[in-house]
Simulated scan of single mutants.
Amino acid sequence: MTTKTPHFQPEKTKDGRWFVAVKTGNGPDSHIGDFDTEADAERWVATKSEVLAWQRELKCRAPLSCECRQC
């Protein structure tokens, strides 16, 4: 099976809050965070998404600090 690089995209909830959708192409999207603004969600993508993608690629060898919720 080929591992795809996840795509991170801020999305708005029905009640006006924001989260980051993690789209891998392998099943349903994951949702991360509960942000006040789109800028906050975008900041998370800019500063944390690369670490999350790296941890997933290593099959989450750092479960105490992992945010993927698959550990």
Rank of each mutant, 00 (worst) to 15 (best):
T47A: 07
M1R: 10
D34R: 08
A46N: 12
K14Q: 10
P28S: 11
K4T: 05
R69Y: 09
G27N: 12
T37F: 06
A53D: 12
C71L: 13
W18E: 01
A46S: 11
A21K: 02
K48I: 01
A41Y: 01
C66P: 00
W44V: 05
S49M: 04
T5Q: 09
S30P: 05
Q70Y: 06
P28E: 13
E57W: 00
V45S: 10
V22F: 00
R61C: 12
T37C: 11
R43N: 07
R43V: 00
T5C: 07
L52E: 07
Q70F: 08
K23W: 01
C68Q: 06
Q9P: 10
K23V: 03
K23T: 08
W54R: 07
V51Q: 03
F8Y: 11
D15A: 10
E11M: 01
A53T: 10
D15M: 02
D15G: 07
Q55C: 04
K12Y: 06
R61I: 14
W18H: 05
D29Y: 01
Q70L: 13
G33K: 00
M1P: 15
W18T: 06
A46W: 06
F8E: 04
P63I: 03
R61W: 12
R56E: 14
T5S: 11
E67A: 14
V20M: 01
V22G: 05
A62W: 05
R69A: 15
D36E: 13
E38G: 13
A53L: 09
E67P: 11
S49P: 03
F35A: 09
H7T: 13
T47Y: 00
E38R: 13
W18A: 03
C60D: 14
V22A: 04
C60I: 07
D40T: 08
L52K: 03
E11W: 04
F35T: 10
K23E: 10
W18F: 04
N26A: 15
I32V: 08
D15P: 01
Q9W: 04
P10A: 12
V22D: 00
K4L: 07
D15K: 04
R61H: 11
K59L: 07
A46V: 08
R56Q: 15
W44K: 05
H7L: 08
E38N: 14
E50F: 12
W44R: 03
R69K: 12
S49N: 06
V45E: 07
D34S: 11
T3R: 12
K23R: 11
V51G: 04
K48L: 05
C68S: 09
A39G: 05
T2M: 11
H31F: 09
E38Q: 15
P10R: 03
G33M: 03
L64R: 14
W54T: 12
T47C: 04
G27S: 10
C66H: 00
E38K: 13
S30M: 05
P10K: 03
M1F: 14
R43Y: 02
E38L: 11
S49C: 08
D36H: 08
G27A: 12
